[in-house]
């Protein structure tokens, strides 16, 4: 084959260009700190990256939902624990009042305390978390309970049923609330309002014999509230483990994402230096191959 000088220069130039193009690519990856800078770099992986990005964003949202729910459940638990103490106190008072040694005057004093407790429990029922009444079902903007001014019974004000749902992982909805009915009527037969009202009425009437008949009912109410509290505890546990799983998922996905798109800095840097060396060599060789012709040797 005939070889001309133009072939040499053309070849040289195209090789130089190729080296430069490879350098540009690696420099882009180094400065962008990513293997895949545009869809055509890897059309398959780019869709994985996109899915992973969306899943990560979604996961962040789940985490915020879970944390929000934990706060809600915490508030619920506090309210229930306080209610349980209140019921226990009423139980104690009923036991005391049932003994025949108490005078009417003393019973009347106890009745004042029970009235106080009735108001307290109503307060617990009207607990709000971040401006939302937690026992109100769907009607979260109105206080669910009030004390009837005459009968002193705790009655529904705005409270309703309705599940407050939250999504804690893809497709998993969890109801995080105890609705108004469950709070006021945990036994399903008599509301705590009625029980308290009856106890109060007997105390006011000074009838310790009648008072004693409510001991069992209060015991049932107490058990029902304890059950309710343990339900909330179970939900809290579930949320805690969902939170752990969420964090583990995020970590996993971040790792996978990083393995797909991040560059191995050490490897890339070495690769880049090698390219630089090749490019420099190409440049210096250019001077040697392009100069000589026969003309150089003619006197």
């Amino acid at each position: 084959m005939r070889v001309t000088h133009k072939m040499l220069t053309d070849n040289y130039l195209s090789n130089l260009n190729r080296n430069l193009a490879a350098m540009q690519k690696s420099q882009e990856q180094l400065s962008g700190f990513s293997e895949i800078l545009r869809p055509s770099d890897d059309p398959y992986e780019i869709t994985r990256i996109m899915r992973m990005d969306s899943s990560l964003k979604k996961n962040e949202q789940y985490l915020s939902n879970i944390e929000n729910s934990l706060g809600w459940l915490d508030a619920t638990d506090t309210a229930l624990q306080s209610t349980i103490s209140a019921v226990q106190r009423v139980q104690d008072l009923v036991t005391q009042g049932s003994s025949e040694t108490y005078s009417e005057e003393q019973l009347s004093m106890i009745s004042d305390e029970v009235l106080e407790i009735i108001n307290e429990v109503t307060q617990y029922g009207n607990t709000s978390y971040q401006g939302r009444y937690i026992f109100a079902g769907h009607n979260t903007i109105e206080a669910p309970f009030e004390v009837d001014a005459l009968s002193k019974e705790i009655v529904y004000a705005g409270g309703t049923t309705g599940d407050i749902l939250t999504e804690i992982s893809p497709g998993v909805n969890v109801s995080i609330n105890i609705n108004a009915e469950d709070f006021l009527n945990p036994t399903g037969s008599v509301t705590i309002g009625e029980t308290f009202q009856n106890v109060y009425a007997e105390l006011v009437a000074g009838d310790s014999e009648q008072l004693a008949t409510y001991a069992d009912e209060i015991e049932e109410q107490l058990d029902a509230y304890l059950a309710l509290a343990s339900e909330v505890g179970a939900k809290t546990n579930r949320m805690e483990s969902a939170k752990e799983k969420n964090k583990a998922d995020t970590l996993n996905m971040t790792e996978i994402l990083s393995s797909i798109q991040d560059i191995d800095l050490a490897e890339k840097t070495v690769e880049h230096s090698a390219m630089k060396a090749v490019y420099n060599a190409t440049l210096s060789i250019g001077g040697h191959i392009l100069q000589p012709t026969l003309l150089d040797y003619l006197g």
Partner: peptide
């Protein structure tokens, strides 16, 4: 994702 993958592989 399908659109991006198509554009990517065409390019």
């Amino acid at each position: 994702a399908d659109i991006v993958a198509t554009v990517g592989s065409d390019t």
